[in-house]
Amino acid sequence: MKIKHLLAGGSLLALSTLPVAHAGATLDAVKAKGFVQCGVSTGLPGFSATNDKGQWTGLDVDVCRAVAAAVFGDASKVKYTPLTAKERFTALQSGEIDMLSRNTTWTLTRDTNLGLNFAGVNYYDGQGFMVHKSLGVKSATELDGAAVCIQAGTTTELNLADYFRSKGMKYTPITYDTSDETVKGFEAGRCDVLTSDQSQLYALRIKLKDPNSAVVLPEIISKEPLGPVVRNGDDDWLKVVRWALFAMINAEEMGVTSKNVDEVRKTTKDPGKQRLLGLSGIKGQGLQIRDDWAYQIIKQVGNYAEAFERNVGQGSPLKIARGINALWKDGGIQYAPPIR
């Protein structure tokens, strides 16, 4: 905690002394130092968490890796900074990290007053509730008077207040700093309900000693478009991050995967795929990075479908269905502008 205060103090100092950034400052700095400093969560299975080998993995981590692959041709050129919900924006504003990829909801306040820019949406989410099975609660409308565990500094705190107020119900918020403490508080019975973005509920549920002792309620009470964030006023960098994500989504749409990308690159006659893989079109010129940037992303990180299934979908313990995160042509709302 003391260290956190120091950090906050340090960040403040950094805010005051950093020279004012010119448009391409972050991209130049990243190229010069040779890695991307990426802010992630302190541990949220499926989105950003360390595996048993101590490597960071997850859907959010894959965005960081995609950016590194695009800039350096090497997805491993990332350094991670674990951040709680409370710390994340100060860390980004002060320049401690180059980008934030930490299940962060795109809102008006954050996009404007906080001096941030959202690069896109890598997961469309909504807030849900998880309760102890023993309570026998079937719907969020039965939660009047409940004690609710939440994490500080999230949209979750605000949505919760809105929801109970609009339903004329009362609640007691118990606000912890980290998701670990939130889970512990819930497990110890300090609260009846744990609320957060629904995807995170599934992730936190598998952190419980007995995941079957809790159920996720059907209600979704908010819109939570989660995506990578960069600082305001640095358009070049914003575009690199944005198009790294778009490349993954476009690759899925074109059926290019990490497995077949080499094959496709050799044989394809499809002009769309040729542009994607840097064989024609403006290649890396517009983004001021390598020509095969999208090829490197697909080769090393995979397309959006691969990343989704590996981290949060059927290939993971979370087993989240694609739902609205399916591509637009499959009935979802994931949609990326064309690479041309």
């Binding site: 960040s11 606000t175 403490e181």
Partner: peptide, 27 residues
């Protein structure tokens, strides 16, 4: 000020924590 660790709503938790995060006005 170690209060936020266990969710006690003290000045650091409420003001230097949640309020800071919601408004972004760190300084």
């Amino acid at each position: 000020s170690l209060a936020p660790a266990i969710g006690y709503p003290d000045l650091v938790a409420l003001f230097a924590g949640t309020t800071l995060n919601q408004t972004g006005q760190a300084v």
